[in-house]
Write a protein that binds this DNA or RNA. Sequence first.
DNA 1: GCGTGCGCGGGGACAAGATCGCATAGAACC
DNA 2: GGTTCTATGCGATCTTGTCCCCGCGCACGC
Lengths: 221, 221
Amino acid sequence: MTTTPTTPHDPAAPRSRRALRPDDGRLVRGRKARSRIREAALALFRERGFDGATLRAIGARAGMGASSIYRHVESKEELLIDELAARQEEAWMRFRKGDDRRLPVRERLGRFLELEHALLAQDADFTTIALRASTQPEARVAKRVLALQDRTIGLVAEILQGGKLRGELARGLDLLAASRAIVHVLAGARIPWANGLVSAEGCRASIAAALDVLFSGLAAR
Amino acid sequence: MTTTPTTPHDPAAPRSRRALRPDDGRLVRGRKARSRIREAALALFRERGFDGATLRAIGARAGMGASSIYRHVESKEELLIDELAARQEEAWMRFRKGDDRRLPVRERLGRFLELEHALLAQDADFTTIALRASTQPEARVAKRVLALQDRTIGLVAEILQGGKLRGELARGLDLLAASRAIVHVLAGARIPWANGLVSAEGCRASIAAALDVLFSGLAAR
DNA sequence: GCGTGCGCGGGGACAAGATCGCATAGAACC
DNA sequence: GGTTCTATGCGATCTTGTCCCCGCGCACGC
């Protein structure tokens, strides 16, 4: 997915001339440090929100100075994206586990969105930050967020595909465009909620209404 | 629109016990300063982009120190929101001027989106920043962006309404939900473009495809 | 055993947005 | 004319993400 893997200091793929053995003490220490950082960051995000969680505080909780965090991470946003990616993964796994391809598309889609929503609703910050990250000039982070979104779109497309095969969907339907539209509408509906302008219930209702519109279409029949 | 007008230092509505006459020298000076700031900010945004335009630089060009800017503005984002609002206003005016209510909805909508897009496409920064602003914890800015978006949604709803009256749209259509969906899809489609992951043409195509989907609907007929 | 290379951690510095307390100046009121 | 009130302006300072450079310590080849 990433078009430029030539990052000089990418900790995941060090460009050392002589490859280190994966059980090298230094690498092991590094991995432990990374997981400490992730834990600390997540806890502090929960406690104080993304902006409230200072890198210095995260560093302190992880047992290191703030600047050392940059040995393992390229930016603060990346910490949150890591977490977001992990949660997405989990939500998708959970979806697949309970998924039944014989159900009507509408229902499968509903279940998927339900899980996706539950995932993000855990912290309102996630919606906010994922979006903000996608608007950061630092390309690396934005691209990761968009890649995640692309995967979501892909999953939705897969679900729709099932429905299309069984004739539940319009024949000429552009699956990709449709999936994109669904995902975008979801994101758009969540923004006012993340800003506290709409209740969780209002957000859900808005999404449901949008799905109705999407399924039946605007044009007169 | 704003639910909390009790800001202690809101320059637009000072809560002085004794109201100042609008031609009070201080107020006049303040107005001039504000417009100088706006000019300087806009010019620098154009020259160096939002992040490249330092508050200190803006202040210098406006003939004052950076900190003084905060006498007139609550945050850097607000400067850009001002500009965005002005452009929205202009785009809407231009739309209304050339609008013909007898045209098919689809066409009217297309023209509207065209103008809206031309407006934002002037600087890719606008899409990015408007979106980023809507994710800022500072409620004031986020709310202004969302209010702008709400107005856009309202305008789209108005356009759709015309089509509905003439039977071009589905009878049971939820106009508000539909308008929201359209605007959200637009925003969603613009994000990858603003990040340079999709060409302007790709973005436009994606929007067109989404509109197709929206109009004809997902479900089989 | 011993240099050597490399990953890691830290202190300090920097940039830029934001805040604070003080100074100024002009208007209003006596 | 003097006092007071208040919008404006400024310099210093704070905060926080990020960068730079140094020292440490461990693994590896000799």
